[in-house]
Computed example of a mutant assay.
Amino acid sequence: MSACHKDEGQLRRPPSDGETKSAGTACGAKRSRQSGYSQDLHRLPARTKAQAEAKRNALDAARTAELQKEAELAAIRDHTDAMEREYHAFMLGVSEQVAAQYGKDSDEYQALGYKKKSEYKRPARKPKAPTP
């Protein structure tokens, strides 16, 4: 690797086809054509192993908290479903009790949201077909 490709022990990318060094060009002129490539590397903040481990631990903690909240939500959802089934079974018992006590043709049965038995359309008789 030539002196133009290394800067204080840090590796640089090799030049592309359009950036090949001509015989009369100096390394400084080549760097200026790379739109400040070497200057940008000096502005990057330092990254340490401790920072990486801290970021990873924070990510793991956030994922663990998310999984715990999802488990809590699933438990609450299961409890709500059980309460809905219990309420539904209770209301079916109420409707059966009202039907037994007052009958299916009563106003009390209709107040529960059911249709009175007398409001159903009675089936019409089919007239017999004439025999030839």
Results as ranks from 00 to 15, higher is better:
3 A>N: 14
3 A>H: 08
7 D>A: 05
12 R>I: 04
14 P>T: 11
16 S>H: 04
17 D>K: 01
17 D>H: 01
18 G>S: 11
20 T>S: 05
21 K>W: 00
24 G>F: 08
24 G>E: 07
25 T>V: 05
26 A>F: 08
27 C>T: 03
29 A>D: 06
30 K>E: 08
30 K>Y: 02
30 K>G: 08
30 K>D: 09
31 R>P: 00
36 G>Q: 01
37 Y>N: 04
38 S>V: 11
38 S>D: 11
40 D>Q: 10
40 D>E: 11
44 L>W: 00
46 A>L: 11
47 R>G: 09
48 T>P: 09
48 T>L: 02
49 K>W: 09
53 E>V: 09
55 K>F: 10
57 N>D: 14
57 N>E: 12
60 D>A: 14
60 D>Q: 14
62 A>M: 05
62 A>N: 07
63 R>V: 10
64 T>M: 10
65 A>R: 06
68 Q>M: 10
70 E>N: 08
71 A>H: 02
73 L>G: 01
75 A>E: 13
76 I>E: 13
79 H>W: 04
81 D>F: 02
83 M>F: 03
84 E>R: 12
85 R>C: 04
85 R>H: 14
88 H>G: 12
89 A>H: 13
94 V>L: 11
96 E>G: 15
101 Q>Y: 11
103 G>F: 02
104 K>E: 13
106 S>E: 03
106 S>K: 01
106 S>A: 10
107 D>E: 12
109 Y>M: 14
109 Y>K: 05
110 Q>A: 13
116 K>V: 01
117 K>G: 13
119 E>G: 04
119 E>M: 08
119 E>D: 14
120 Y>S: 10
124 A>P: 10
126 K>I: 11
126 K>E: 15
130 P>E: 13
131 T>G: 03
131 T>K: 12
132 P>T: 07
